[in-house]
Amino acid sequence: MPVFSIRRRSFLGLAASVITIVIITYLSAMPRLPNRPMEPHRGRTAPKPTQHTEETKKCQAGYYPSKNDCEPCPKDHFSLPGWISCTPYLKCDEIRSNIRRVRHLASGGVKHVYLAEWNSYSVALNEAHASKSDFAHDVAMLQMLTPHPRVNQPLGACGDLLVTQYHPLSSAEKINEVLGRDKYRKLDTVKTRFRLALDYVGVLDYLHGHSSLVMCDTNDLGKTLSQYLITEDLRLIVNDLDALPSAKDKGIKCGHRQIFGDFVAPEELWPYSNKPFEDEEMPGYNEKTDIWKIPRVVEFLLGGSEESLKVLENLKGIHSKCKEKDPKERPTAKEVLESYKSTWINF
Rank of each mutant, 00 (worst) to 15 (best):
A140P: 01
R150F: 06
E127V: 12
S170D: 14
L155P: 07
V201I: 12
V178K: 07
D134S: 15
Y206P: 15
A136W: 01
N152K: 09
L161I: 05
L198F: 02
F135L: 13
G159R: 14
S212F: 03
Y200R: 05
E177V: 05
F135Q: 11
L162H: 01
V151Q: 12
Y166E: 08
N152P: 07
D134M: 10
K191C: 01
S131Q: 10
H129Y: 03
S131D: 13
D138H: 13
A157Y: 09
D182E: 15
L162N: 06
V178I: 15
L162M: 12
L162K: 03
Y184F: 13
V163S: 05
D205V: 14
S212I: 01
D199A: 04
R150I: 06
E177N: 13
H137F: 09
L198T: 07
S131W: 04
N126M: 05
V178Y: 04
T189F: 00
L155M: 14
S170R: 10
D205N: 15
A128Q: 08
L204E: 05
S212V: 02
G202M: 06
D160A: 09
V190Q: 09
S171L: 03
L196P: 02
L196Q: 04
A197Q: 02
L187W: 06
M144D: 15
Q165K: 14
H137N: 13
D160T: 09
